[in-house]
Nucleic acid binder design. Structure first.
Lengths: 102, 102
DNA sequence: TCAACAAATGAACATATGTACATATATTAG
DNA sequence: CTAATATATGTACATATGTTCATTTGTTGA
């Protein structure tokens, strides 16, 4: 019986990856950055200014977002412009929001 | 300009709540428990057996899931049967999955 | 009432994580 | 080439988090 359940479940490996993805969303600084990027493509100092955060804090968090492919960068001169990499990000965000709102 | 962006963003308060929600999904043990509950309503020992986890580990994590209203309990004798509290949980889960799969 | 069982809880501990400060890298302007 | 600016990175540190072990609570059956 528990064997049947186990067989229907995705690989544990995959579930670890999934947890890692949600971990990225599970920090208020990163969520706020993501949310800012819904509105516009922004450079690092733009984000830190907007959210009142240290430049290095933003940069560190952007690296994590980059590594997880949630944001992409476009370099222009001295600036790095960040934007969201795809629509999944917004969907995941919205799903979470509607759970809270219920 | 950054004022306009700020005005369009949800309250910071709400974004903190949202991060807290995703934090719950951001742990492999909890994700695995959630995933098991997609298949069936289960008692605590059933989950620990299925996933190979200590009873107390499962119980601790179920408490967190309960506090965040992701699971609900039905008590029957000595046992506590857990199940998912709503469909949002599955939707959030699936959204995450499809991001990984892409 | 007592033993057996299921689940919940408390405390301690090791590990992970986010932030700040300092510094390095890279690019542009002069 | 140098100074100024934007970003990235390294390190240290405080805090948060998950797990384990031990114990408690609650329920059933003898």
């Amino acid at each position: 019986m528990s064997e049947i359940i186990k067989d229907n479940m995705p690989d544990t490996e995959l579930l670890f990856e999934l947890a890692d993805l949600f971990k990225v969303f599970g920090d208020s600084t990163r969520i706020r950055i993501i949310c800012a990027l819904f509105e516009a493509e922004l450079p690092v100092y733009g984000i830190s200014e907007l959210l009142g955060l240290e430049q290095s804090t933003v940069s560190h968090q952007l690296r994590i977002l980059r590594q997880n492919k949630l944001v992409k960068v476009r370099k222009d001169g001295k600036q790095s412009f960040y934007s969201l990499s795809d629509e999944h990000v917004r969907k995941i965000f919205d799903m979470g929001l509607s759970h809270i709102m219920e």
